[in-house]
């Protein structure tokens, strides 16, 4: 089971932004590269503030970076 249901497009956004490295992104948002890896892989859900910082680095809206799936349907 994944620790968070939040998904993200950070990897694609890095690629679209001149193939930005995880280390570059980590430095710009003030965390370790390992934390960027954990966020990309869905093993760590960042704080709202960190999420905004990531979106700002790429110049996009928060929900262009992070997505949350609709609630699971309850069986009748």
């Amino acid at each position: 089971m994944k620790p968070t249901r939040v998904t993200n497009t950070i990897r694609a956004l890095r690629f679209a932004h001149d193939e930005m490295t995880q280390a570059d992104l980590a430095e710009r948002i003030g965390v370790t590269r390992q934390t960027v890896i954990a966020i990309e892989q869905g093993r760590y859900s960042p704080s709202l503030e960190m999420a905004f910082r990531i979106a700002r680095v790429f110049g996009v809206r928060l929900d262009d970076v992070f997505q949350y799936p609709d609630s699971e349907e309850v069986a009748p």
Partner: peptide, 15 residues
């Protein structure tokens, strides 16, 4: 490609 940058170990100092 820089996207596959793996210059440092993936284990943090704290781990």
């Amino acid at each position: 490609s820089k996207i596959l940058y793996l210059g440092e170990a993936v284990v943090t100092h704290e781990e």
